[in-house]
């Protein structure tokens, strides 16, 4: 019960900030919608490239990428908030008030999740409104969103781990750049089979490729490696969870 107090308190405060200060949150909400528009709209002809085999068209193809990207970045941006809290000293208040400090980290993760869910709703509505086709059934779609949720956790725990180690918002590029790179070193614009050269080599070993292909498969109703992708996402989640909690220990040892 005390742990839930801490979790809900921290999550409430983060969301309250977002709700009462739209200038903070609107850009991070708008970016995924914008990327989706720019990619799905500007590059739609790519579906005519010989070998582009995705059955649902380019809008659906891009939708899955942007959904996973927004999940990861909702996590990363929440990590920014944590870093700012350490820099500005507010984290000290949380550390002092919370009997169970793990609740602070989980509370932020919960805020990241809720933030992403709002984005996901907008994104889905937009995609359906511009005529995105859906091939998968209910189970497939649950699979897609749960997969994205795991990506959201990974994104937050990665960024939160950095935030608690560096305890300054100047670490923002360090939180953001690797996520940006790993996402874009995947088959973002075209399927893996159409990539050539170094990007093909990188994308083949990039775990995000695996998640992205499975996500697209869910939307089409034919996920290629569903079990593997979930095991991978859960494995990454556990690894980043550990990374974040070791970060909390570091922050505690350094005196916040």
């Amino acid at each position: 019960m005390r742990l839930w107090n801490v979790i809900s308190g921290v999550a409430w405060r983060t969301l309250k900030n977002a709700l009462t200060n739209p200038q903070i949150v609107i850009p991070t909400m708008a970016f995924p919608l914008f990327f989706f528009t720019a990619f799905a709209g500007g590059l739609s002809q790519i579906r005519h490239v010989p070998g582009f085999g995705f059955p649902l068209g380019y809008t659906a193809f891009q939708f899955v990428f942007v959904l996973l990207q927004s999940a990861a970045f909702s996590g990363v941006f929440t990590g920014f908030g944590l870093a700012r809290d350490f820099e500005g000293g507010f984290a000290k208040r949380l550390l002092l008030a919370a009997p169970h400090r793990s609740g602070i980290v989980i509370g932020y993760a919960l805020a990241a999740l809720i933030r992403w869910m709002v984005v996901a709703v907008f994104l889905t509505v937009l995609a359906l409104a511009v005529g995105m086709q859906v091939g998968g059934g209910a189970v497939d779609l649950v699979g897609l969103y749960v997969l994205a949720l795991l990506v959201n956790f990974c994104g937050f725990f990665w960024a939160g781990g950095i935030a608690m180690r560096f305890r300054t918002i100047q670490a923002a590029p360090l939180m953001q750049m690797p996520v940006f790179l790993i996402l874009f070193f995947a088959p973002v614009y075209v399927p893996l089979e159409l990539l050539e050269g170094w990007i093909e080599a990188v994308a083949t070993v990039n775990p995000v490729t695996y998640l992205l292909e499975t996500g697209r498969g869910f939307l089409a109703g034919d996920p290629p490696h569903a079990l593997g992708a979930f095991l991978l996402a859960i494995g990454l989640g556990v690894a980043f969870w550990t990374w974040a909690f070791l970060g909390l220990r570091k922050a505690e040892a350094a005196g916040a």
Partner: peptide, 17 residues
């Protein structure tokens, strides 16, 4: 440069249009 590298690699096949 990073954006260009990523886009150039990812979109190279669109030159076949």
């Amino acid at each position: 440069m990073a954006l260009m590298a990523v886009n150039a690699a990812g979109l190279d096949s669109s030159t076949e249009l």
